[in-house]
């Protein structure tokens, strides 16, 4: 299974990478929405993108909107992973087409449980 991590913080990308690798995913990284969008257009077989909200160039919400506007990317699941914790943010992300929403801080269990809700469990189905 292929996952894409979209976050402008290197430390956050590293943390998420470790969790996803442990869950059996092949992981790619992007530093902002624009980079993520071009990656996805090259790799439309990506199953899941974990998307930060606040990023330079193109933010997470704009990325979600762009991905949902592109029919060739309809198989990509989108999960926001963000410090934005207000109800209005969760609502906006879902309306824009995000499939799931994780509020920072999070743990490996939280990520694994959310992925399981989407029917995704990496290479090792029992890792969670």
């Amino acid at each position: 299974m292929n996952a894409l991590i979209v976050d402008d913080s290197r430390a956050m990308r590293l943390l998420l990478r470790q969790m996803l690798v442990a869950l059996g995913f092949e992981v790619a990284e992007a530093r902002h929405g624009r980079e993520a969008l071009s990656h996805l257009q090259m790799r439309p077989d990506t199953q899941i993108a974990l998307v930060d909200w606040n990023m330079p160039e193109m933010n997470g919400l704009e990325l979600v909107e762009a991905v949902r506007a592109d029919e060739t990317l309809s198989g990509v699941r989108l999960m926001m992973v963000t410090t934005e914790t207000e109800m209005a943010h969760v609502q906006r992300a879902l309306e824009a087409g995000a499939d799931e929403y994780v509020m920072k801080p999070f743990s490996k269990e939280i990520i694994a449980d959310k992925l399981a809700l989407l029917g995704l469990s990496g290479g090792d189905a029992h890792a969670a």
Binding site: E109, I110, K114, A116
Partner: peptide
């Protein structure tokens, strides 16, 4: 609420 709760249920059934 981060653990295992689908975001659509959070939005629909909870208030902050």
């Amino acid at each position: 609420v981060n653990r295992g709760l689908p975001a659509k249920y959070l939005v629909h059934y909870f208030t902050k």
